[in-house]
Design a protein around this nucleic acid. Structure first.
Length: 257
DNA sequence: ACCAACAAACACGGGACGGC
DNA sequence: GCCGTCCCGTGTTTGTTGGT
């Protein structure tokens, strides 16, 4: 049974570029990030153009973009591992009883693998006249809060595992070390539209912070081309390369029953 | 050395919508 | 219908620059 994909992307007029890209990817059966990166950036560009002009609305942006990226990442992992991933709601952590998971495995019971995604960054749009920077909002603007959210989710789920297993081994006095050897495998993949060099540095800083808490963090950072036509991906540190991170997840998935 | 002007960073507060 | 998560908008604070 295939993973359920975003209804917003499937139906909304404003999300047409995202929908078209996903549909095309589905047919090509890609299993690695480099196979889809160009098309992803083009789709995001086309979408952002629509968003800037008002053709795509706030709903498309907030409920389409992020889910689209989740769908795409899940598609790659499914093709690569031959496992189905699932979005899940109400998964209990140690502290909070109801976490929602973007893409995870297996479908029920204790979570083995969790993939969270974040997308951030917006062009200057008509609905935000006060945006001064013509290149748009900084992608890193909101990362502090959102990385903290993702980190807490990871910690809470990892802390819940040993409690359920009943064999000890809960959080020790060295939190980071404990997180790294604890299940579920928890990774974050981020697609961040960046406005300048500084914005990129900040984004990498937050990605590394996330990497302290989660087992792996993948980042695709991109910025508008000089002539303001299309996006190009930016180079980050190797350990944050999305392709490497997805490979690790794929291997983990393959080794699971 | 001062201070105004501008920019960057931070913190908080949503609107939108799907899942339960 | 509530609740949680999606990502963005904007007022306030902190930092930087450049003129006198």
């Amino acid at each position: 049974m295939p993973r359920k994909t975003s209804p917003r992307v499937a139906t909304s007029l404003g999300c047409a570029p995202l929908r078209a890209m996903y549909r095309a990817a589905e047919k090509r059966k890609p299993s690695r990030w480099p196979e889809v990166e160009k098309e992803f950036l083009q789709a995001m560009w086309d979408f952002d153009q629509k968003f800037a002009s008002g053709e795509a609305n706030q709903g498309d942006n907030q409920n389409g973009k992020g889910d689209f990226f989740t769908d795409l990442i899940a598609l790659l992992l499914e093709n690569c591992s031959d496992k189905s991933l699932y979005g899940r709601g109400s998964v209990p952590g140690l502290i909070f009883p109801n976490h929602a998971l973007d893409a995870s495995y297996p479908q029920t019971g204790t979570v083995e693998v969790l993939v969270e995604t974040k997308v951030a960054g917006a062009p200057k749009t008509l609905r935000n006249p006060s945006q001064k920077n013509p290149r748009g909002r900084m992608g890193s603007a909101d990362l502090d809060k959102r990385i903290k959210e993702a980190g807490l989710k990871t910690i809470d789920l990892k802390a819940e595992w040993p409690r359920g297993a009943g064999k000890g081994g809960g959080p020790t006095n060295d939190l980071i070390t404990w997180l790294r050897r604890s299940k579920p495998m928890s990774v974050l993949s981020m697609a961040i539209r960046v406005v300048d060099k500084n914005d990129l540095e900040r984004t990498i800083h937050f990605a590394n912070a996330a990497g302290q808490m989660m087992d792996a963090v993948g980042l695709v950072a991109y910025e508008p081309n000089p002539k303001n036509k299309g996006y190009h991906a930016l180079k980050g540190p190797p350990h944050l390369e999305l392709d490497r991170v997805l490979s690790r997840v794929c291997t983990a998935l393959r080794n699971l029953p």
